[in-house]
Simulated assay, not measured.
Amino acid sequence: MVAGESSGDLLASRLLSGLRPHLPHADFHGIGGARMAAYGFRSDWPMEKLSVRGLFEVLAHYREIKGIQNALRDRLLAERPAAFIGVDAPDFNFGLETPLRAAGIPTMHFISPSIWAWRAGRIKKIAKAVSHMLVVFPFEEEIYRKAGIPVTYVGYPLAEVIPMEPDVTAARLTLGLAPRDRIVAILPGSRMSEIKYNTAAFVGAAQRLQQRDPSLRFVAPMAGEAQEALFRNLMREAGLADVPVRILQGRSHEAMAAADAVLVASGTATLEVALFKKPMVIGYKMLPASWAILKHMGYQPWVGLPNILAQEFVVPEFLQHAATPDALADAIWIQLEDEVLRARIRHRFNEMHHALLRDTARESAQAVLKLIGREAA
Rank of each mutant, 00 (worst) to 15 (best):
M297N: 10
V264A: 10
L175I: 06
H347V: 09
S190D: 05
A327W: 12
F318P: 03
H347D: 14
P301T: 10
F137M: 10
A229Y: 10
Q300P: 01
E142K: 13
I282Q: 02
D242C: 04
E64Y: 11
M222R: 14
W116Q: 08
I143T: 15
E339I: 13
P179A: 13
V2K: 03
L175Y: 02
E228W: 11
M1I: 12
D44G: 09
V264P: 08
G32W: 02
S266R: 03
R236N: 14
L369N: 07
V184G: 04
M1P: 08
L371I: 07
G189C: 00
L234H: 10
G121Y: 12
A323F: 12
A37F: 13
A171E: 02
I143P: 07
L100H: 01
A37W: 14
E194W: 09
L187P: 10
L294N: 10
P166D: 08
A78D: 02
E140T: 08
L371D: 04
H25R: 12
F110K: 02
Q311L: 13
V219G: 03
L50S: 14
G30W: 03
S114P: 06
T324Y: 04
K146C: 01
L19S: 00
E142F: 12
L96F: 00
R20F: 09
S6F: 10
I111E: 09
F28S: 05
S51Q: 10
M222W: 05
Q207S: 14
L341A: 12
E64C: 08
V281F: 11
P316H: 07
D44P: 10
T174I: 03
A241N: 07
G54A: 11
A310F: 01
R14I: 10
V58Y: 01
E237F: 06
M352W: 09
A12W: 02
V161G: 00
R145T: 11
D9P: 12
G33Y: 03
I111W: 00
H253C: 02
L158W: 01
S6T: 14
I31A: 14
N198M: 09
E228H: 13
A238K: 09
G18V: 03
S7W: 04
A331T: 09
E160Q: 15
L23K: 02
A102D: 04
T360F: 09
H353K: 06
L240Y: 09
I126G: 01
A3D: 06
S190C: 05
P316G: 04
Q311T: 13
G204P: 15
E317R: 07
R75D: 13
A355E: 15
L187I: 15
A329S: 15
R42Y: 13
L72G: 02
D242T: 14
R362N: 06
A71H: 08
L177W: 06
A170I: 04
L23A: 04
M235H: 07
I65Y: 07
W291L: 05
F318N: 04
